[in-house]
Amino acid sequence: MLNRLQLTATVEREAELRYTPAGLPVLEMWLKHQSRQREADLERDVACEIQAVLIGKEAPRWSGKLAGQQIAASGFLAQRSLRNPRLVLHIEHVEFVKG
């Protein structure tokens, strides 16, 4: 099944690094995206916000460095929890975008 999102965005806010009970590092962040896209043969403004999370050994390396930065992130989407259907981007790959 396809489930893939690539997004260039600014990291609005970054949570403090936390750990799962088994000791995996978890970095949560809030992304803000703004761009121009084509729709029905016309250019338009697009803006969206989405929560993202980076889990695993990459997380401590990025922790504290992301807030305010522009990143290119890719990963899959999942809902926030059983009861909360809001989407969260689970980041598999991230890099800074030189502005």
């Binding site: 799962t20 088994a22 000791g23 995996l24 978890v26």
Partner: peptide, 13 residues
């Protein structure tokens, strides 16, 4: 402590 949820695989327990 399980590394991931034994039912669905979610690591963020």
């Amino acid at each position: 402590v399980p590394h991931a949820c034994p039912d669905c695989g979610n690591v963020d327990l």
